[in-house]
């Protein structure tokens, strides 16, 4: 087991290095940098900067050095926990990201919980009661859920919020808690706001998981070992849960970590529409203003967290199911 974890952690390192390079390069790609954008903006406002002033700015931000040196500097500091300076906010990236990152993680976690809590029972029910009215209803909702991009869903919910409740559905906190320190009351307030984005981000994943769960369960229900169990005289309900459902759950739970990239992506987009104080809006603004270190650090962190999440889920799975530990992925 320890060997397995070690192997997986070691495998993670080259991926992380690659991601850091990619994150940094993507931000470097567009012609010009933060200073050019900044100067252009000033010029548009009628203010001209002299050559010296521009050079001084570039030196201040370290933009006069070649790209790879900037990268090496950034990544060395990054590993030590210092993610550099945000040009736009003129503040350390760490402090900007901190709380937003935590909120993103909490939201992703709840979304994951929501997806599985909804999808597994519904999937089983649809399979056991195949072609029942409820099965058709769930299938239909599932199709709609898969077809509606979550940012559109967010818009629609906002619209309903205004039309029906007369209140905007955005944000994660009530006004009185916005700048308040963390307290039990603030956490409670956050949870009260969080269900909506969680439902929105989770809808597509739920719809997809219901389909997989239903299909696998149906597949398993027809297998010979179920007939064996029936021939023992087991009760039908217990039989279904203990055999086909148990087998069908394996691949679903084993891919729990693979859902993370999708969910993190979803939270970024939905956060933009609902104006949530998570990483989404910050990343968007950083990308728009070529805020090099902020944008690169955020892509890097989001990817890293996703990878770690996947790793944890894989390790948990290996711990639960010995077959995977020995490299026999998949069931039956």
């Amino acid at each position: 087991m320890r060997e397995y974890i070690l192997r997986r952690v070691i495998q993670l390192i080259p991926t992380l290095i690659l991601i850091s390079i990619v994150s940094f390069t993507i931000i470097q790609l567009p012609p010009g940098d933060y200073v050019t954008t900044y100067v252009a903006n000033l010029a548009a406002a009628g203010e001209e900067l002299s050559e010296e002033e521009i050079a001084a700015l570039e030196e201040h931000y370290g933009l006069n050095q070649p790209g790879y040196i900037q990268y090496i500097k950034w990544i060395t500091n990054f590993v030590q926990g210092d993610m550099g300076l945000s040009f736009y906010w003129d503040r350390p990236v760490n402090r900007l990201i901190g709380e937003r990152l935590m909120l993103t993680m909490i939201m992703s976690f709840f979304t994951l919980l929501f997806v599985y809590a909804m999808a597994i029972p519904i999937g089983i029910y649809s399979a056991v009661r195949q072609y029942s009215l409820a099965d058709y209803v769930f299938t239909f909702i599932g199709f709609i859920g898969l077809a509606t991009p979550n940012f559109l869903l967010a818009l629609i919910f906002m619209y309903i919020g205004i039309k029906v409740f007369g209140a905007s559905a955005g944000g994660l906190f009530s006004t009185e808690y916005l700048d308040a320190d963390w307290s039990v009351a603030k956490v409670w307030d956050m949870l009260k706001h969080m269900w909506l984005p969680v439902v929105i981000v989770g809808t597509a994943g739920t719809a997809g998981t219901i389909r997989v769960m239903r299909a696998t369960t149906l597949d398993e229900i027809g297998r010979p070992y179920v007939e064996t169990a029936r021939s023992k005289g087991l009760r039908e309900g217990r039989l279904t849960m203990k055999y086909p459902v148990r087998v069908a759950l394996n691949p679903i739970l084993s891919t729990i970590g693979w859902r993370l990239p999708e969910i993190v992506s979803g939270t970024v987009l939905v956060a933009l529409v609902l104006n949530l104080p998570t990483t989404g809006p910050l990343l968007w603004r950083a990308l728009m203003s070529q805020d090099l270190y902020l944008a690169a650090s955020m892509i890097m962190i989001l990817s890293t967290l996703t990878l770690i999440g996947t790793l944890i889920s894989d390790i948990l799975l290996a711990w639960v199911d010995p077959r995977i530990r020995y490299g026999e992925r998949g069931t039956t």
């Binding site: 991601i19 993507i26 567009p30 693979w258 999708e262 992506s265 892509i299």
Partner: peptide, 20 residues
């Protein structure tokens, strides 16, 4: 595996923003 492990939307956003 590498490509699939990166969250799509941030990657897309980054790449799209990279277009001049």
């Amino acid at each position: 595996e590498f490509i699939r492990s990166i969250p799509t939307i941030p990657l897309w956003m980054g790449l799209a923003a990279a277009m001049p």
